[in-house]
Amino acid sequence: MLYKIDMKSAEPLYEQIVNQTKALVIRGILRPGDKVMSVRELATDLVINPNTVSKAYQELERLGLLEMHRGRGTFVSEDWIDQDSPRAPILEAIKKLAIDCHYANIELTEALTLFETEYKKVGENHADSTATE
């Protein structure tokens, strides 16, 4: 199962699907041209309302990440660029992380190294998936 639905999260269900789909593409688990599950498949799989999945797919189509081809299914777009990726929540997460690092006595240099390693790891996967085009 690629998606994890968290009913306790403050994030609406359709947003969870939107964000997790984005993450799957960024991490290269879903690649351009890949077929994604139909609304019904994903809804029954996750046991959630099909209208919620539809709403998420519509949003992803609007963002240019998914393309629906009548009769064939829904696919990951070949040329999606995450343009309006919201920076605000990321800055917010960094703020929290900075506080956590302080409490855990992690020095700035160490924190930066750790971040760099993780950032590069994601970058490699992402580069791999775009290189196969």
Partner: peptide, 14 residues
């Protein structure tokens, strides 16, 4: 329970 819910979802979607 999950089977019952899935059956319902599939009906509505189809």
């Amino acid at each position: 329970k999950s089977d019952v819910l899935k059956l319902m979802i599939a009906q509505v979607e189809a």
